[in-house]
């Protein structure tokens, strides 16, 4: 029979097994890359911290060549390391390293995420939540705004011509320049805390949503639109039954970019204002008070938060598209 169904009943069996194999299959290359990065990182730590390690050794009475700090300044970290190979292990465990080594960052992360009480001002979970809550609020505002603008652009020619250039222009302005102004201006009219940061997050996240959503809403081809015309469908029906569901895959792609941009926006919003809480504040504290481990731990916490947020969206995407029948189960 020429037109038998492509997928017979029961074709879904073995999907879990396949998924498992896919995960283990994907893990090997990822672990290889991670191992490579960590190795490079350790190598980079040696020259970065060599001068401090040599001075430390000199104070402890261990012979160092050359034997004065001024003479050592003439040398690069690498050549200093080659002359004093015995001191190299100490570069990995400096108290205030120029570049902390991976295990120091890992220990700091473990200490501030798992061992500190969540309410403690040193807990990264506390600071992470401050940042993530502003990120989520800003992401929600940005997404809502982005979808509304996209609908306007698709249905109104005037908006199509007028909004898009401004939306693009808005993204060419360096956010680092805009963020302090937004915080200061909103602060002047008495708005402080979560909301100003969320505004900056929204500012960064609305753009990918507009672009993706416009493309998604315009994705139905002429034939599909003609089909609805033959049914004499209203524009609202055209939107709800065709354009909106057709845009779902495009929207999710944009949301994943948008939420990462939101997190960056929130952290940028925390940096210039002397905020006392949030991952951005921790990065600033680490830099200003010579605690590189604090800054690095905050940096990694931000990366972990971004990965979790994007991962959560990917799960929602899979579930939604599968439920809609677009993605094969």
């Amino acid at each position: 029979m020429t037109d038998a169904p492509i997928a017979a009943p029961g074709a879904g069996i073995g999907a879990t097994g396949r998924a498992l194999r896919r995960i283990t299959g994907a893990a090997a290359p990822i672990l290889t890359i991670v191992a490579g990065i960590i190795a490079l990182w350790y190598i980079a730590v040696v020259p970065m911290n060599m001068h401090a390690a040599a001075s430390q050794a000199e104070r402890d009475g261990i012979p160092v060549a050359p034997d004065t700090a001024i003479a050592r300044q003439e040398l690069t970290g690498t050549s200093l390391a080659l002359r004093n190979t015995g001191i190299i292990p100490q570069t990995f465990n400096q108290d205030r390293p120029r570049l902390p080594s991976p295990h120091q960052v890992a220990a700091e992360l473990w200490d501030t995420i798992a061992l500190k009480r969540v309410t403690s001002k040193r807990s990264l979970v506390y600071h992470g939540w401050v940042t993530v809550s502003a990120t989520l609020l800003g992401f929600a505002i940005g997404t809502g705004l982005g979808i509304l603008l996209a609908v306007g652009i698709v249905y109104s020619r005037a908006m199509d011509l007028s909004i898009m250039p401004w939306a693009i222009a808005s993204q060419t302005v360096p956010i680092l320049a805009v963020a302090p102004m937004v915080i200061v201006m909103l602060g002047a009219i008495g708005i402080q805390g979560l909301f100003p940061k969320a505004m900056i997050a929204a500012y960064l996240s609305f753009f990918p949503v507009v672009v993706g959503m416009v493309k998604g809403l315009r994705s139905p081809d002429a034939m599909q639109l003609d089909l609805l015309r033959t049914y004499s469908a209203s524009r609202l029906q055209e939107f709800l039954k065709l354009r909106l569901p057709a845009s779902a895959p495009y929207l999710f792609a944009s949301l994943k970019i948008g939420i990462a941009a939101s997190l960056v926006g929130t952290i940028v919003g925390e940096l210039p204002t002397g905020a006392r809480a949030g991952l951005g504040a921790r990065m600033l504290v680490g830099d200003q008070f010579g605690q590189p481990l604090v800054a690095w731990a905050a940096l990694f916490a931000a990366a972990i938060a971004a990965a979790l947020l994007v991962g959560a969206l990917a799960l929602i995407e899979r579930a939604t598209l599968r439920r809609m029948g677009i993605a094969p189960a």
Partner: peptide, 14 residues
Amino acid sequence: YGYVFQAAGLYPWR
């Protein structure tokens, strides 16, 4: 009238 196009044009999410 009912109109049948060259492609089936079924909505993939339905």
